[in-house]
Amino acid sequence: MDYFVELLFSGLTRGAIYALIALGYTMVYGIIGLINFAHGDIYMIGAFTSFIVATVLSIYGFPLLAIILLAGVAATIWSSAYGFTIEKVAYKPLRQAPRLSPLISAIGMSIFLQNYVLLAQTSDFLPFPTLIPDFEFMEPIAHIVDSTGLVILLVTAVVMFFLTLLIKYTQIGKAMRATSQDKTMAMLVGINVNRVISMTFVIGSGLAAIGGLLIATHIGQINFYIGFIAGIKAFTAAVLGGIGSIPGAVLGSLILGLTEAFATGYISSDYEDVFAFSILVCILIFKPSGILGKDETKKV
């Protein structure tokens, strides 16, 4: 039983990690139907920004909480700026182009960002500082879920909660939903669609930056390539849950994380990816738009 609970929390932590990245994928897809392959690299840039800020601040002896908050804020702003710029530079000019063009542009952007960080920073793995200390009250259950894991779970839950509020009850949320349903119609009723799309990129990138900070603390190391594998898994999770749906992204991430953890725990970690992708295939056979996805035929 203990073992089951341990694996359960391993899976939930992993799922929450995927969810923080998957949310950005799903938001952008929901609004403009684009799979933003550069999203994983935005997450990587968030991790690097928080690394630089945290390192500098810890030299000046700031308290840990201040470091986390300042690094988080800096990473969010910086990554959002990247997301905003990427949309303007790489996707907006292609909005009327066939669907494949922005997709290729996104892949190009991803490669560009990776190599830019490789050249501007380093190819080495960098030790990410431990920003979240081992809480004392966690000690009795530390073997099940560690403090960083707990923070990741809580942050994911909070982020999802506020995101749902934002989309359901605010003006920009309403505009987002309208744009996602029918872009032309939204424009006709006076919604500034360009602004809505920019906002989506800004919010999605900000979330990826928070993810970058937390995940890097969890893993303890970063390099320019971390965005790729994490991005692919998060994308898989978003598709699994129904791309375009925000609860779907979280649900898909948790299912993916739990599948991987239990496959590792009870069968073999050699096959964790096999099980993860088998689940994806099975669900897509029976529900092509994902678990919570809207039923409509769209070409990807």
Binding site: G11, T13, R14, I17, G149, A261, F262, S269
Partner: peptide, 8 residues
């Protein structure tokens, strides 16, 4: 490259 090795 996996994000988490806690299960193993």
């Amino acid at each position: 490259g996996a994000v988490d090795y806690s299960a193993i």
